[in-house]
Design a protein around this nucleic acid. Sequence first.
DNA 1: TATTGTTATACTCTATAACTATA
DNA 2: TATAGTTATAGAGTATAACAATA
Lengths: 159, 159
Amino acid sequence: MARPARTADTASTPAAVGEGVLEELIGYALRRAQLKLFQNLIARLSAYDLRPAQFSALAIIEQNPGLMQADLARALAIEPPQVVPMLNKLEERALAVRVRCKPDKRSYGIFLSKAGETLLKELKQIASDSDREATSALDDEERGQLLRLLSRIYQEPRG
Amino acid sequence: MARPARTADTASTPAAVGEGVLEELIGYALRRAQLKLFQNLIARLSAYDLRPAQFSALAIIEQNPGLMQADLARALAIEPPQVVPMLNKLEERALAVRVRCKPDKRSYGIFLSKAGETLLKELKQIASDSDREATSALDDEERGQLLRLLSRIYQEPRG
DNA sequence: TATTGTTATACTCTATAACTATA
DNA sequence: TATAGTTATAGAGTATAACAATA
């Protein structure tokens, strides 16, 4: 591919690169803050060889014992095929189980194992610690404010 | 692999799947809110065959004319190899140009073209509209509060 | 020898279509 | 025929190692 033949003599390398208009966008701030919290949580969960989505899955299964894979997919905002390898992992590690439905033999009910319940208790504390550490610039009242504002954004039906 | 032989007769399918403890985590709320804003922006930018990262790149180039690819990579929080195909696209579409540095012929200065500047003006308005639409559950004061809280989280050096 | 940009590669995440087994 | 789960596959996004040209 052709490259421009021009040359620049004013390639001043700024010490810090500014973001300009991006800093006024909530979407941009959300992305950067979310990345920071996600990376903190990933690092902490890596000791358990777990990903954030697997932690979320365990928490959702605990809250909704016996739910079907399609329900779990919807709750995690992923497609049903993605649930399969994830649930396989959790089942291999004996943290969750698929149980055939008596009435409809096509579907499974998903449950936590005893080990899954025990581990989840530990993971909840880790996630909570991670949350606080990554938002240490805020005090508790500000965390509550932030949580309420974010909840209203994502809970609103359409937008 | 062996599957459990058990069967469940209490596979009550809940109408809505609850998240339980996840709803108390800022990281979880951040992820869901960020996803919502991102998808709104992706949909709007698709009319221009652009991704959010490309819009961010254009905005950063405008704010830092002549910056090098390594600087752009750092600002976008991506690795230098990822900048190459992205910048190739922008150059193919004549929105940005790479200009060989006179003093150091290894590096390029990156600049917006006139067309890039014009398009960016339009994109800024689109991004701003997208931001407001996806956060329509909040009023302007709440948007300002949210932006300040988020900025403090991601601007804090370590955490 | 070190640095800028690049290539090649791989691993994850995500999305879609097609298959199976039940219904 | 329709549905639950699964398989296969392909496309993004992301990360690392290795290479070319230049310093």
